[in-house]
Design a protein around this nucleic acid. Sequence first.
DNA 1: TAAGATTGACTCTTCAATCTTC
DNA 2: GAAGATTGAAGAGTCAATCTTA
Lengths: 182, 182
Amino acid sequence: VCLVQHSATILSGVTRVRALSFDPIAEAERKWIAQGWSDAAPGMAVVTSVMRAQQLLLARVDAELRPFDLTFARYEVLMLLSFSTRGSLPLGKVGERLQVNPGSVTNAVDRLEAAGLVRREPNPVDGRGTLAALTDEGRRIARQATVALNSRVFTALGVTDVTTSTLFELLQELRQAAGDFV
Amino acid sequence: VCLVQHSATILSGVTRVRALSFDPIAEAERKWIAQGWSDAAPGMAVVTSVMRAQQLLLARVDAELRPFDLTFARYEVLMLLSFSTRGSLPLGKVGERLQVNPGSVTNAVDRLEAAGLVRREPNPVDGRGTLAALTDEGRRIARQATVALNSRVFTALGVTDVTTSTLFELLQELRQAAGDFV
DNA sequence: TAAGATTGACTCTTCAATCTTC
DNA sequence: GAAGATTGAAGAGTCAATCTTA
């Protein structure tokens, strides 16, 4: 009996995951080639890998943010505001920078406001608009959450510095090709 | 006025996206360094890049699958079954291979069964279990959807073959370090 | 007692529709 | 009319609780 197949769950907060004893995506790529889809096989493997990597990373990030009652989406809003010069931004700007729907921004700001981390203010230069403004508490929580993420996720990915920086560059190419930025 | 900032929406099916004229993640990395978090900056950039790449790729994939009334999650179930020797698998096996919760599998199979692409059958070797079995229609749709994805996404990522294969290898390292497989 | 599967509550996202203000 | 923001419905994921059977 191979112990790894029955290995314990991985990563605090991720309940469902048992490690497989082989890479399911490499397996899928072989199946693709066997079907005569060799030209599409590498693309399929990359797309699937990005999906799975996102799932794994998001689980780790969310586990670290749970004590602060934050999700990654809400954390991103907090950091965006904390980097802005006034500590406040129009909701539309937030959605544009984070590439999410207006509805998601409204939802995120609703939660952050209920938690006292953000305050809604009328936009002085546009009567239609609303600003999301960071509170002192919001700035404090953002900093604490960043300390947690920095130490337990961002500096603990388990791969070399070269892998990390190369990965960033290649993903940047991919995002640019997909129209994320120009 | 920089035209790209006001450029049209990108990619069929993705309504919300306007391309930015700079890379917001590279910008965030600079902010991280300016805050004195240089050691965590590359990790932050990679994690955020994976999140954004997933969002962009999923939007493209879902747009191609919409005519078949499929999501990527349901498409993955279909392909997993079509690669199995009998064309059927226990629901638990599906969840294990796809790394999703039992609830998600139940939901996906519910939809696929309602669409006539999959049939539930009792597991002959385990009275507690249920098999998801591909129907002829399911096998046909799976093949058609694959043709669409192969030609319009997997072979059209817009990056070189070297970038694609290197990206796969590095993501494989990252997934392995995160415990996706052993 | 444990495992396979389902259910219901909750969250988040997307999308269309709406309201207000430019 | 067009843009900023909100709302409600629908889809999908997680999680805890439950039911059945090994």
